[in-house]
Nucleic acid binder design. Structure first.
Length: 488
RNA sequence: CGAGGUGUAGCGUAGUCCGGUUAGCGCACCUGCUUUGGGAGCAGGGGGUCGCAGGUUCAAAUCCUGCCACCUCGACCA
C-alpha cells in the first residue's frame, strides 16, 4: 500500500476513495455499484443509527419491518412516484435457476406471474398495509419507522454517496389532519438537523425543495443540506409532507369524529449511509479521516513505545489507572501494542483512521510521571502529568467535537455568498461555494441556470425576506430567496 | 445510457508501438535476526490462467474481433 492518500487539492474524488479504502470504512462489492461496509465503517453507522433511533423513539415513533419485495403494480398507483422511480428499479422475474450444459442459467419455466420489484423506497407497500389498519380517526396517527436496505439501480456510483443498494431509515406516518402531518415532517427535520450537527458535527442548512428537486409523490420536501470540503452541496436528509397522494392512490380513508369519510394525510422521511460520505468529506484532510468523538469507533488510541518486553510490561502497569479512568467515563479506547509496527507507522495509521486523540507512552514519560497526547483536529503534542488526568479526556473529547463543528461551520459560512449579479453568481459557482440569491420561482429560470452553471437550488430557507429582492437570472421580483450550488 | 481512457500478484506499475529467454520492479505478505518517541534495516521466501472469450501465427501480455469491469466527463439520482 502506498503511503498516505492522494492530496485533496490534487484530486478530490481520488482522495475520497483513498480515504475510504485505506481507513477501511468500506470496499467495493462484486456486483457493480455495491459496497461492503467494513466493521470500522459500520461502527460509525451504528453510532449514527443509535442516536436517530433513540430520538425517534423519544418522539413516539415505533420500529417495524416491511418486505423487500413489492408487487410491480403497486409502484404504478401514484403517478409522480412511478415516474420518479421506474427508471432505477431492480426487477425479479424468475424464481429458479437450472444447470444447462454445465452452465447455470435462469429457468424460463419459473417466470413469475407478476413481476416483483426490489423496493427503491417503501411508500407503496406500507400504504397497502395502512389501508388494512386504518378505519377510524382512533387508529391515527400511525408513526412507524423502519431500518432497512433499499435498491436503486444507479448508472454512476460512488462509495457511500450513491450505491445501488444502501442502508437507511424510512419513517412513514399517517395523520388525520394536514396540520398534524406538516408538524410531523418538520419535527423530523429538526431531529435530522440535531443529530447531524451535534453528533456528526456537520452544520446544515434547512429549508424546502423546489418543485423539480422534491421527492416523487410529495407535496412538499423539507431538507437538510451540507457543504462538503470541496464546496459542493450534499443533500443529507429529507422529510416529506405527502398530503393525501398516497392515501388516494391506495384508497386509505378514515372516519372522522363527525362520521365523515376522509383520506389520510401522510409523511415520509429518510436518512441513509450517505451521511457517512458527508462525514468523510466535511471533516477529512490530507492525513485521512477526522472523526467527531461521538461517532468515532475508537475515541482514544494509546501507542506504547517500548524497546523490550520488560519495557512493555512496565508501560502496561503504568497506564492501568488511565484505562480505569477511561472505563469510568465510557470512553472507547484501544491499546495498540502490536509488536511488528514502529510507533511512527501506528501514528500515521490512526491518523488515517481519524481517531480523535492519540496518546504515546514510553519510558521517558514514565520517568516524567507524564503522558504525551495529540488531538486529530489540531497540530502539536501535549504533555500531561498522569496524576492530573481526571476529567481531562472527557473534556478534551467534547472540545474536539465542538472544534470540528466550528471549523466546518466557519468553512460553510465563508464559502456562502450573497449576490444579485449573475456574473458574480457564475464566478462563485465556478470557484465553488453556495450562492444566496433571489429566484423568481419559475421552473424555466431554474432549468436555465442549471444548464448554464450546473448549479441547482439546494434549498429554499424557511425564513424568507424577499422584499425588493430581484431574481438573479430574470431580474424580475423574486418570489423566494434560495441557495444555489453544485451538488453531489 | 453517450464520449474518452485504463485493465499485467492484494495494491501500484515496466514490458505492448516493432510477437521470440524462466513476465521484471516497488509496496504489502511470510520466516529469522537486529530494531522501535513520525510510515525501521538486513537476509531468505511465497504469490501471476498478463480482465474474459474467440481468432491469426511455429510462437501472443504484445496483432485482430467480440465481450466484461473500472476510472473521468455528460444525462439520472438519497
Amino acid at each position: 500500500m502506498a503511503k498516505g492518500v492522494t492530496p485533496q487539492s490534487n484530486d478530490a474524488s481520488k482522495w475520497y476513495t483513498d480515504v475510504i479504502t485505506k481507513a477501511q470504512l468500506a470496499d467495493y462489492g462484486p456486483v457493480k455499484g455495491t459496497m461492503v461496509i467494513r466493521p470500522y465503517g459500520y461502527s460509525i453507522w451504528e453510532s449514527i443509527k443509535d442516536e436517530f433511533d433513540t430520538q425517534f423513539k423519544n418522539t413516539n415513533h415505533v420500529n417495524a419491518y416491511f418486505p423487500l419485495f413489492i408487487p410491480k403494480s403497486f409502484l404504478a398507483k401514484e403517478a409522480e412516484h412511478v415516474e420518479g422511480f421506474a427508471k432505477e428499479c431492480a426487477v425479479v422475474t424468475h424464481s429458479k435457476l437450472k444447470v444447462d450444459n454445465n452452465k447455470l442459467v435462469v429457468d424460463p419455466e419459473s417466470k413469475l406471474e407478476e413481476e416483483i420489484i426490489v423496493r427503491p423506497t417503501s411508500e407503496t407497500v406500507i400504504w397497502s398495509m395502512y389501508k388494512k389498519w386504518i378505519n377510524s380517526y382512533r387508529d391515527l396517527p400511525i408513526l412507524i419507522n423502519q431500518w432497512a436496505n433499499v435498491v436503486r439501480w444507479e448508472m454512476r456510483t460512488r462509495l457511500f454517496l450513491r450505491t445501488s443498494e444502501f442502508l437507511w431509515q424510512e419513517g412513514h406516518t399517517a395523520h388525520s389532519t394536514e396540520d398534524e402531518a406538516i408538524v410531523e415532517a418538520k419535527k423530523i427535520l429538526e431531529i435530522y438537523q440535531d443529530v447531524v450537527e451535534n453528533i456528526m458535527a456537520i452544520p446544515v442548512l434547512t429549508g424546502y425543495k423546489s418543485e423539480s428537486e422534491k421527492f416523487a409523490g410529495a407535496v412538499e420536501t423539507y431538507c437538510i443540506e451540507a457543504m462538503m470540503g470541496d464546496k459542493k452541496a450534499l443533500q443529507a436528509g429529507t422529510s416529506h409532507y405527502l398530503g393525501q397522494n398516497f392515501a388516494k392512490a391506495f384508497d386509505v380513508k378514515f372516519q372522522t369524529e363527525n362520521n365523515d369519510e376522509e383520506y389520510v394525510y401522510a409523511t415520509s422521511w429518510g436518512v441513509s449511509t450517505r451521511l457517512i460520505g458527508a462525514l468523510i468529506m466535511v471533516h477529512g484532510d490530507d492525513q485521512g479521516l477526522r472523526l467527531p468523538p461521538k461517532v468515532a469507533p475508537i475515541q482514544i488510541v494509546i501507542v506504547p513505545i517500548f524497546k523490550s518486553d520488560e519495557d512493555k510490561e512496565k508501560i502496561i502497569d503504568y497506564v492501568k489507572p488511565l484505562f480505569k479512568e477511561f472505563d469510568k467515563n465510557n470512553i472507547r479506547y484501544y491499546f495498540d501494542d502490536r509488536n511488528k509496527m514502529s510507533p511512527g507507522f501506528k501514528f500515521n495509521e490512526w491518523e488515517m483512521k481519524g481517531v480523535p486523540i492519540r496518546i504515546e507512552v514510553g519510558m521517558r514519560d514514565i520517568n516524567d510521571d507524564a503522558i504525551i497526547y495529540s488531538r486529530r483536529d489540531k497540530q502539536g503534542k501535549h504533555k500531561i502529568e498522569i496524576g492530573s488526568i481526571k476529567g481531562h479526556f472527557p473534556n478534551l473529547l467534547d472540545d474536539i467535537q465542538q472544534s470540528l463543528f466550528d471549523q466546518a461551520k466557519e468553512f460553510q459560512e465563508s464559502n456562502t455568498h450573497s449576490t444579485n449579479s449573475y456574473d458574480d453568481f457564475k464566478n462563485i459557482i465556478k470557484k465553488g461555494g453556495f450562492v444566496k440569491c433571489g429566484w423568481d420561482g419559475t421552473n424555466e429560470t431554474e432549468e436555465k441556470i442549471k444548464k448554464d452553471t450546473k448549479a441547482t437550488i439546494r434549498c429554499i430557507p424557511f425564513n424568507q425576506d424577499t422584499e425588493s429582492l430581484k431574481c438573479i437570472y430574470s431580474d424580475t421580483q423574486a418570489k423566494y430567496q434560495v441557495i444555489f450550488a453544485r451538488a453531489y
